[in-house]
């Protein structure tokens, strides 16, 4: 059974996006598998479209878009309540 939480971050590589990426990196727990996807690559762009992502940075946890970050400025509180930083029991 997969015991890791898969966290995908859609980023455009700009300073604002990067702040969120470093924040997630900082508070992520050992059981989170982190992947940063650059919106400028065709593969990531079409995944983002399929998931309905319209603004970045956007967090996708275990395949579902986390609503901590969509349409809101990302802060540590929001990330923690979305489950980032909590080990899977």
């Amino acid at each position: 059974m997969n015991t890791k939480r898969k966290v995908e971050i859609f980023s455009a590589g700009c300073p604002v996006c990067e702040e969120t990426v470093s924040l997630v990196n900082r508070i992520a727990c050992p059981s989170c598998e982190l992947e940063v996807l650059d919106l400028h690559t065709p593969a990531a762009a079409s995944s983002a479209k399929d998931l309905g992502i319209s603004s970045v940075p956007a967090l996708v946890i275990d395949g579902k878009v986390a609503d901590c970050c969509e349409g809101r400025v990302v802060d540590e509180q929001a990330l923690r309540s979305a489950g980032v930083g909590q080990p899977i029991t």
Partner: peptide
């Protein structure tokens, strides 16, 4: 450059 949007209407431009 290539634009992208952030939350709350802010945008980035590469």
């Amino acid at each position: 450059g290539t634009p992208h949007s952030h939350a709350q209407g802010q945008s980035g431009l590469s």
